[in-house]
Design a protein around this nucleic acid. Structure first.
Length: 150
DNA sequence: CGAATGATCCGA
DNA sequence: CGGATCATTCGA
């Protein structure tokens, strides 16, 4: 799949982040070394996949919110449009939290560059009201069917 | 212990 | 807009 929508989350400086109030058993991976996964379970039925980005001891991760299928023709173009759907398509659960994303079966590679004009930026989605919550830390490919919502 | 609460999705 | 559905977190 090709990623087309992501959101950034930090730590103590970001009230919208799970890491805001310090580490807990669930969020421990967010404080660990970069290049690993942080998978959490929400709303009683969905999992979401994050990639930890900061050095050990500093919280930071990128939530993978949307992607376009590239393997197999006839795939539903919207099957990966949304963090819950994306994680489900990969068959992820909390058992896959804190695993290596650089050299494991599931890894991330570069894709052909996206023209700057096609890169959109906005506030993050689905957060409860808060000031810094409005920071434009959501990036997406304009017009892609793999982007969540309309 | 009990209660509240989601970084969602779907359908009306 | 509301319901489904439950692990995690926090307060007592």
């Amino acid at each position: 799949m090709r990623l087309v929508e992501v959101e950034a989350y930090l730590g103590a400086r970001d009230p919208a982040s799970h890491a805001y109030r310090g580490p807990t058993p669930r969020t421990a991976p967010m404080f660990g070394p970069p290049g690993r996964s942080y998978v959490y379970f929400v709303y009683g039925m969905y999992h979401c996949l994050n990639v930890v980005t900061e050095r050990g001891g500093v919280a930071g991760a990128v939530l993978l919110r949307g992607a376009e299928p590239v393997e197999g023709v006839g795939d539903d173009a919207r099957a990966l449009a949304g963090p819950g759907k994306l994680a489900r398509a990969l068959g992820l659960s909390t058992a896959q939290t804190d695993m290596d994303l650089v050299r494991s079966a599931l890894s991330i590679r570069d894709a052909p560059a996206v023209p700057a004009a096609r890169i959109g930026r906005s506030a993050r989605i689905g957060l409860t009201e808060h000031a810094t919550t409005r920071m434009p830390w959501r990036l997406f490919v304009r017009g892609s069917p793999g982007v969540s919502r309309r």
